[in-house]
Design a protein around this nucleic acid. Structure first.
Lengths: 206, 206
DNA sequence: GCCTGTGAAGCTATTCACAGCT
DNA sequence: AGCTGTGAATAGCTTCACAGGC
């Protein structure tokens, strides 16, 4: 099957659709029209239909899209074969927030280990996730076959941590440190930059 | 002066450039070439030069861009006249992380108040920012002339809080709740969606 | 009649190619 | 020779317009 790469913005919207659809499932709604989905996702019906085209999903004129089917389809497109194991580095306020948030919430995005060198944190369990010292990173990442890493360490150590992660075979990184990481091309980095978003808001709200 | 609106992606890069340049300032580097800036920002020299074009900044062939000047220029483009006062709603782990992170770090992005209804949190000061009960929101936002709001309340109350914020005259919202907010067109919303980014990483890392 | 599916057009952002300067 | 500035070309994404079906 030709697993052609879906463009970034469409992937983002698919994730959103999936979430909306899962809500609908919970409410027992069986079908939804492109307009309805668009309204909830804050975009246009045409865009929804185009997105459906790119994942080759097709609804019916009368009922629109089948909620259960579509959830399955999107999950199929997004998920790979194996579960996505993740690790987190740096248990500050933010790291803790993420660990707590994720506990048992997202079945196939599994946080399997956290790392911090603070002796007060090592071996503590937060949100169902145990903290190990940084020096065990390579070993545990390999053992667990973790592919995604979350960086919530202070800015000054972020690049070093990234280097170790790459060396340990991590495939992609979610980086909260406000600096662009220097990594090989095959590593995918997503930046979460709160200050940048705020400056953006400050700029556009006038 | 024709203050023409700068496109979103360029604003994002300008914020990044500014940060890099401020680092250079601290190191006492007086000039930088487009290539140098591009290397640190992980993009191309042409793009840097184009971005400079859009803010009408011009360097010299020999030395490149003047670090101090450029910082000033970018700040001028990004900042409005008045300081940008912000408020935060919802002091959970994440809210606390942001409050602590921002304390005294960003002079012109000023967090002036936080809101939560938990009696154990009201009147507590976190990161230099006092917590008020939600019912005071409208009054304090007006008094302080706050224009930016950060939503870190649980998903189920996010829309309600957004409604109150809009009603109180907030101009833009940074939303951490994983659902698209329904707000009037003139309100600007930036979404920070950690789960979405992780799903995106999961998808693209294969 | 209102829905979906879809090629075409339009728009935005990035990259190319090169002129001019020092 | 290597840099900046910049119009032209390309690529990527979104919107338009409409064909076809229930």
């Amino acid at each position: 099957m030709a697993q052609v790469s879906i463009p970034k913005p469409i992937v983002e919207r698919l994730v959103l659709y999936k979430r909306i659809l899962q809500n609908l499932q919970r409410q027992g709604v069986p079908h939804i029209h492109s307009h309805g989905l668009a309204a909830q996702a804050n975009n246009s019906a045409v865009q929804v239909r185009h997105d459906m085209m790119t994942i080759s999903y097709t609804g019916t004129a009368r009922k629109g899209y089948d909620v259960n089917d579509l959830v399955k389809r999107i999950e199929m497109m997004l998920r790979g074969e194996h579960p996505n194991r993740m690790i987190l580095t740096g248990i500050g306020n933010l790291g803790r927030a993420i660990l707590t948030y994720f506990s048992a919430k997202h079945p196939y995005l599994e946080l399997v280990a956290a790392f911090d060198d603070d002796p007060g944190k090592v071996n503590r369990v937060t949100g169902g996730c145990r903290c190990f010292p940084m020096k065990d990173m390579h070993r545990i990442i390999t053992e667990q076959d973790a592919r995604i890493a979350i960086i919530t360490v202070p800015e000054r150590s972020a690049q070093h941590v990234a280097d170790v992660l790459v060396e340990a075979g991590i495939k992609s990184i979610l980086n909260f440190a406000p600096l662009p990481l220097n990594v090989p091309d095959h590593i995918i980095v997503e930046q979460v930059d709160i200050t940048m978003k705020l400056e953006k808001l400050a700029y556009f709200s006038k």
